[in-house]
Design a protein around this nucleic acid. Structure first.
Lengths: 112, 112, 112, 112
DNA sequence: GTGGTCTAGACCACC
DNA sequence: GTGGTCTAGACCACA
């Protein structure tokens, strides 16, 4: 996995895991990889994965069974969508449309 | 000038100057304030302005007359717009579209 | 390390590091010293090293793993040589030849 | 005239004037332009030309008639060539050849 | 006056 | 620990 952007790696990973959940690749109640495992897979320090998991846990997307591992919450999909949909429609979309106007990009020809 | 938290000041200033150029407040071939002047105006260290100017120079938005000062490039506007368009179309738009798909937002319902 | 007077220290250091890479003392994919380490070794401020590293990174000679350090690019050697060859053939050689002509020095008498 | 390089402008101008002398465009004993004139022609501050003239005068390439202007010395050509020829052959050429070797450039195929 | 380089020291987010 | 940003203040060559 490549981490080029300015966004913190642990948040980029969080986004990535949310995508996996939304797309159905990872199912609710399913166990997710341990911090060590995922760290190796992504070529990243386990501490970084730990931060990702803490972040997702505090957002109720995953939960922890002590001594066992992390699991995807039953309502993970709904939680993620609810949180992001409003944020996107109300906060980000207006900025995006305004920006496209400034750059002379026609939304209809680009939103296929 | 007020500065957002998570973006470097010197880049925020660069964006600001680009806006001045795009809006026509600053014209091509025109001299821009010295690093010291602008530093005082914005309440910022001259070194920080220097970084802004280096950044804009390497992007061909401004150029330097030695011992005299910095000037706005003849094609500054075009350069800025081209750079921003590319950034948007190639980097940001794909992510936006992917995200909308995951959130179940139909592009057509977003067009005003 | 001793520094020549009229060339910026951060560029002299960059040249020096390139030499280390070309000579094989430093290998591709290898981690290079942190800005603080190298600063101490060379008796130079870490900020100055930082400038060197920024310069080399923008030339694709080194790259950064966030929070970890700087590494030598896989193709660093080729990149360095290509850059220097271009610089020499396009910038310096014409001037040299012109100067020899003016000084009445015959190219053939210079070949050993 | 363009002044892109790192070399001080006043020295670049000096080189340029020496070239004019060596090529015969400017003849010994001839009067050269006033600092104001040449400054305008080159788009440069008269102070900068003044530095050039002082530099050339201290090298005996030009001399000053007070209240009249600057003139090219009778032996200007010889002076320039003597100074530069040795400098070039003994100081610079060895470095150049060494550098070409490092870059894998064959002198004979390039010194036409 | 201008930019450019450098130092010393601070604070921050991230790994 | 790492890089990255920022400040304050200095010195320099150049115009």
């Amino acid at each position: 996995m490549e981490f080029n952007e300015h966004k913190p790696i642990y948040l980029q990973i969080a986004d990535n895991l949310c995508d996996k959940i939304l797309s159905g690749e990872w199912q609710p109640e399913e166990r997710i990889p341990s911090v060590r495992e995922l760290g190796i897979v992504l070529g990243v320090n386990p501490n970084t994965i730990m931060r990702t998991y803490e972040h997702l846990q505090s957002a109720d997307v995953i939960f922890n069974k002590r001594g066992v591992g992390y699991y995807i919450s039953k309502d993970a999909k709904e939680t993620i969508i609810a949180a992001q949909r409003n944020l996107f429609l109300q906060e980000e979309l207006p900025k995006i449309l305004k920006r496209m106007a400034l750059l002379g990009i026609n939304p209809s020809e680009v939103l296929i």
